[in-house]
Design a binder for these strands. Sequence first.
DNA 1: ATAGGGTTAG
Length: 618
Amino acid sequence: MNQLCLHLLNQCKTLKTVDHIHACLLKTGLFSDPYIFGKLLHHCSVTISDSLDYATRLFLHYPNPNVFMYNTLIRGFSESPRPQNSITTFIEMRRESSLFSSVSPYSFTFAFLLKAAANYGSLMTECGRVDFSMKVFDEMLEPNVVAWNAAVTVCFRGGDLESSERLFESMPFKDSTSWNLMLAGYAKAGEMEMVRKVFSEMEVKDDVSWSSMITALTQNGCFYEVFSVFMDLQRLGLRPNEVSLTGVLSACAQAGTFEFGRVVHGFVEKSRFSWIILVNNTLIDMYSKCGYVAMARLVLETMPATKNIVSWTSMIAGLAMHGHGEEVIQLLHEMEESGIKPDRITFVPVLYACSHAGLIEQGHECFSKMKNVYNIEPSIEHYGCMVDLYGRAGDVRKAYEFICQMPVPPNDIIWRTLLGACSIHGNVELAEQVKERLSELCLTDSGDYVLLSNVYAVAGKWNNVETIRCGEKQNNITKEAYDKLREIMLKLKVEGGYVPEVVGSVLHHVEDEEKEDSVTKHNEKLAVAFGMAKLCKGRRLWYEIEVAFTLSRMVLAHAEITGENIEHNVKLNERKSWLLNSCNGTRLLKSNPCRNVEEYADDILKIIWMLEAERRKM
DNA sequence: ATAGGGTTAG
């Protein structure tokens, strides 16, 4: 009878059927059996959704609930909208449990309380969370390894690295989880030397260890190490799990190593992982960022897993970064029709696409739809897109007014967007104002000088251009890149008759080489130049690998030149994939599967040229 | 007797 009831209970998927079993248990008298009741309570508070109230009522009517029952309810509350109830239940439990046996009930309780504290969010500060959790931990008589691990996690989450280390050292016993969470903790803190140390000192590496290591390296930008660890894993005959695959694909996306990503995709296709949504979503992102937006689309359309908001948003972002504005709008509609509501993240690439494709009306519509239909409060990024929308369309005044009425204070990115618009449309007066605002924020970078000098160049104010150029700080790396750039430009001019044109109207005024020089210093060109200067000459490599490596170098080179953070790198990454995917560019690179670096470099130059031509059209 | 801690995309 016991077994039958338990079996039936396990089959229950809704509150209604559970109620049926409840009645059955009452009739047979099994209801008072603590084991059976515990199972019933667990089912209502953990397994079935929306039945926590029911579980609470059951609990309140049960005389002398045992530790398991308390823990079960605490767990139920920890993942409910009111995690505070976990704490109050715990306080209740502690009052009662003093009567209980010597067995510490807290080893299980602790983990649930930790979850409750973590889900407390805005109601409890980070500090309060740590204090509370550690108080509970200290109360435990003989914490087991799980409790120790949870305590270490608490310290890491509170940002207290030293306490984590201290706890880890004083643990009477460590299991692989203990090591894994140290690795992840160091990774989150950016302590890569410690991450490597922990990984090498681990005696037993389970699949979480491997995937944590891969994730750690990916999150800290050590992409080539990701690939080598991934290959080590396979060399040892181990199977990667979905987290490792996601990490590797994310590294491919960020480093632009399409070649590696494609191999991983092949593996995914032939495995059970193609049913995992996480992996599919990362594939979409990888293909988009590597410039293969059609491949990304193919993944979206053929994935066996059910598409979620991330799948749609990744695809929209992919289309957006390649300038396919109309398709972005269309995909947004498809997404809405499929019953998935776009969120604040979705609208960033949507608005970005509108501004870049010049879809003024649609951009406007989307912005108000976001606010009025979906009740999403615009963030600084959304506002930034709108500034770009007006600015790019030539209405720099409107963009400026828009900034002034924003409910959030404008940051450097907003001002730089406007400065960019001024440089396209040649508004010297406003550009100088904006430059002033940037200086007030103390966030100017070398790119701002380039933009401002472009504004002057557009207006034909060559003396100002010169002043800025001289004031610009140049280190050895930038100098190296500038030298190479000069060489490239010369080559383009001599061999291709290329005249650098940044903006339409300037060109009439471009007369001598010096002036030309000052309007051609765009970051991505500098990065390409730097990457090429560093290329080992005369090597013969398969063209796609070469493309990938060079483009990755561009990202690194860009970071080295400007000392900028990863956000800028990602932006460069987007531009780079756009460059690669530009129809002519792709055809050019694919026309000759094998060539030496010198020839290949020529093609890069041609692509820069085409990129420039695209710019002119905008 | 029942459960718990560690890696996870846009």
